[in-house]
């Protein structure tokens, strides 16, 4: 990426995310034993995958989507947590297990307002019609996640020439604290967490603020670096 910046920096990736979308990438790698060159490669992977997912979301809604990646890096599990103010907010989580050469977990977290907005929008209802996220709404958000995840892993597969598979969407409605905790526990149960990408989608009118997480374990990180010719 032209402008991705150094770890901890903010940069724009205008154009790379597709026509009509732009994104900002922020990386804060904290792990030892990862070289600057490897960081660049991982940044590239994150940029491309998130950019494609944002494009898919823009196509779905028929309007421009900004993506930001406020944090993305190698973090200890215990450090991922909601701020106390945000912890109690109700959210909808859509979780995918990534299988194949480089496994991991992909999760979208939509606020209740996001979920209502998407439901109105995609079902052709007047804005403000959807009041509650019922089973139908959950199923629809699962499909939104499916489209985004599909474009994310397709981009990753093209870039790395690795094989990826996606589980069906798993949808849960709970507090942000609980959903974030479940993301981490699921990733840890599948393998020691290593890389975490945390992206923010912001729609132009400001009505949509979904978050996107991609967590992968150490072996998967190694597989991706290996595929890029960047193995340690």
């Amino acid at each position: 990426m032209r402008d991705a910046g150094r770890p901890g920096a903010t940069g724009s990736l205008s154009g790379d995310a597709g026509t009509g979308t732009r994104g900002i990438l922020f990386m804060a790698f904290e792990a030892e034993g990862i070289t600057e060159l490897q960081l660049d490669a991982l940044r590239e992977v994150g940029n491309i995958g998130a950019g494609h997912a944002a494009t898919a979301l823009a196509d779905l809604l028929g309007e421009e989507i900004d993506i930001t990646v406020p944090t993305a890096g190698l973090r200890r599990t215990e450090e991922i947590a909601a701020s106390p103010e945000a912890a109690e907010a109700m959210v909808v989580g859509v979780l995918f297990i990534v299988e194949g050469d480089a496994g991991g977990v992909i999760v979208y977290v939509f606020s209740e307002a996001d979920a209502r907005f998407l439901s109105d929008r995609l079902m052709g209802l007047e804005p403000g019609t959807t009041q509650q996220i019922d089973e139908m709404g959950c199923s629809m958000l699962g499909e939104v996640g499916n489209i985004l995840s599909g474009s994310f892993v397709t981009a990753l597969a093209e870039f790395t020439h690795l094989d990826f598979g996606l589980s069906p969407p798993n949808v849960a409605v709970d507090t942000l604290a609980t959903i974030l905790s479940e993301i981490t526990v699921t990733a840890e149960a599948l393998g020691e967490l290593s890389l975490e990408l945390d992206t923010h989608f912001v729609q132009q009118s400001g009505q949509l603020e979904g978050r996107f997480y991609y967590l992968m374990d150490r072996d998967s990180l190694g597989a991706i670096l290996g595929a890029l010719g960047m193995a340690g």
């Binding site: 947590a81 106390p84 604290a177 959903i179 974030l180």
Partner: peptide
Amino acid sequence: IPVGMAEVKASKTADDSLSALGLGSC
């Protein structure tokens, strides 16, 4: 006193309470 994921905390201060937030499968 918040007890985050993978934390272990103890107290004998009578006014305190210990609290674990957002327990899903934890």
